[in-house]
């Protein structure tokens, strides 16, 4: 008998499930990125984390720049449509604020590895990395021969995070979770983990999900936390749009260590939760 998800505050959920040295996946492909959870991890000063994400995005730039992370597994590390993730680059190029080990993939490999994690298989398989230099630098990428056709295929060890954290549109009072739109790799990432924490825009009486909707049943989720706006500056389809202007503004904020630290001190360490962060950002805009 599996236990149902507990409705917790985000602060409680991070305290209970995210420990120093843990392997975490905060997923969400452009859409539904769990920013509130990332901020809470930064605020609680977790250290030596191995973090996994296909697209590190600003959320891992913030966690890397504040020293939470010792190892990163990823497949595309930029600020989409804008340029570099400057904190990620500073860590890779100059070991600031601490050395960062990188384990680098392509999207197709990460997707296969998450799917294998969800399936309880030892590795993910794909027709991939052919002729790429990535396998020379990443010992996680091996090649196998198809036992039936002899075709050369890539094999990547399954991703099995201690904790996966995602953001979704809705949960019901029992902790069943519903998401839609660009759903990325979140279902696989949640099923691959020992514990899944889901932040949601709202908790509703009834999900009213269509039979083929992307629903995570409560019994595969450890904790559900209601955090309205918790994906900002990414977006939640049906609730708010991606704040492209913020993504552009981040380039200047993160470019220098000083301006980055000032911003983190003011907007993350200087507030008690994501609600206060949103208010502080709103106030600065007014």
């Amino acid at each position: 008998m599996e236990s149902l998800a507990t409705l917790l505050s985000l602060k409680e959920a991070i305290q209970e499930y995210v420990h120093d040295g843990a392997t975490l996946a905060l997923e969400g492909f452009t859409h539904l990125i769990p920013y509130a959870a990332g901020h809470e991890i930064v605020r609680q000063k977790r250290r030596d984390l191995t973090v996994i994400r296909m697209t590190p995005d600003l959320i891992y730039d913030q966690m890397i720049g504040t020293g939470c992370v010792s190892r990163l597994q990823f497949s595309w590390g930029g600020n989409p449509g804008v340029g570099s993730l400057h904190r990620l680059r500073d860590a890779v190029e100059n070991s600031w604020p601490r050395p960062l080990e990188i384990v680098e993939h392509a999207h197709a490999g990460m997707a296969a590895a998450y799917a294998a994690g969800a399936a309880g298989l030892p590795f993910g398989m794909l027709r991939g990395y052919l002729g790429s230099d990535l396998p020379k630098y990443n010992p996680q990428i091996k090649f196998i021969e198809c036992p039936f056709t002899g075709e050369r295929l890539a094999a990547i060890p399954a991703i099995r995070p201690d904790v996966t954290i995602i953001h979704a549109q809705k949960a019901d009072h029992r902790g069943n979770v519903l998401m839609w739109g660009v759903v990325g790799v979140q279902k696989e990432a949640a099923l691959a983990a020992k514990h899944a924490i889901v932040t949601v825009e709202e908790i509703v009486h009834k999900l009213d999900a269509s039979p083929n909707a992307v629903v995570l049943p409560s019994w595969v989720v450890s904790a559900v936390c209601e955090v309205k706006g918790g994906a900002f500056p990414s977006y939640a389809q049906g609730y708010y749009a991606r704040n492209n202007a913020f993504y552009k503004a981040w380039d200047a904020i993160a470019r220098e260590r000083d301006s980055f630290e000032d911003w983190m001190n003011r907007y993350v360490f200087g507030v008690k939760d994501f609600h206060e962060f949103r208010s502080a950002v709103e106030a600065a805009r007014a």
Partner: peptide, 20 residues
């Protein structure tokens, strides 16, 4: 790769798009 002059975003979907 291990001592980069400029670190770029990386592969994303490109290796398999280019292959398949």
């Amino acid at each position: 790769y291990r001592g980069p002059k400029t670190r770029l975003p990386g592969a994303g979907g490109a290796p398999e798009i280019a292959a398949s």
